[in-house]
C-alpha cells in the first residue's frame, strides 16, 4: 500500500520537476529577449537625442537595405519616437510575464519541497514499520 503511494509521489515529483525546468527555461528566454530590447531602446534613445540636436533644415537619410533614402527630419523624429514607445511597451509586457513566471516558479518550488518532505516522512514511517 505505502510503496505504491511512494511510487505515485515519485511520479508526481518528476512531473513537477519537469514543469519547473520548463519554467526556468522560459524565464531565461524571456531575459534574453529583454536584454535585446533594452539594447535597442538605448540605441534609439541615443538617436532621438541626436535628432533633437539637429537644425530644422538638416538633411537626414534612412538606410533601407543598401540604399540611403532622404527623409524628413520630422518624419524621422516621429518614427524613432514611435519605436521607443513600442519597445518600452514591449519591455513592460516582458516584465509582467517574467514576474508571472517567477511567481509560478516559486510556487512550483514550494510544492516540490512539500512533496519531498512527504516522501521522506512516508519512507521514515515505512522504515520503522
Amino acid at each position: 500500500m505505502s510503496s505504491s503511494n511512494i511510487r505515485d509521489l515519485q511520479r508526481e515529483l518528476e512531473n513537477k520537476a519537469n514543469d519547473l525546468s520548463k519554467l526556468q527555461k522560459d524565464i531565461a528566454k524571456n531575459h534574453q529577449v529583454r536584454k535585446k530590447y533594452t539594447i535597442q531602446l538605448g540605441e534609439n534613445e541615443l538617436v532621438l537625442k541626436e535628432l533633437d540636436l539637429l537644425k530644422e533644415d538638416a538633411n537626414v537619410y534612412k538606410l533601407i537595405g543598401p540604399v540611403l533614402v532622404k527623409q524628413d527630419l520630422a518624419e524621422a523624429n516621429a518614427n524613432v519616437r514611435k519605436r521607443i514607445e513600442y519597445i518600452s511597451a514591449e519591455l513592460k509586457r516582458l516584465d509582467s510575464t517574467v514576474q508571472d513566471l517567477e511567481e509560478k516558479q516559486n510556487s512550483k518550488k514550494e510544492t516540490i519541497l512539500k512533496l519531498q518532505q512527504k516522501m521522506q516522512t512516508l519512507q521514515a514511517g515505512k522504515g520503522k514499520a
Binding site: 540605441e43 538617436v47 541626436e50 538633411n59 537626414v60 537619410y61 534612412k62 524621422a76
Partner: peptide, 21 residues
C-alpha cells in the same frame, strides 16, 4: 560629412559638427 547616428539613420553634418559629434 555623413554621420551614422545609429538604427539606420544618417545625418549630413558640416565638418566642425561632425568633429563635435
Amino acid at each position: 560629412v555623413l554621420v551614422d547616428i545609429g538604427t539606420g539613420y544618417f545625418v549630413e553634418k558640416t565638418m566642425p559638427e561632425g568633429k563635435d559629434y
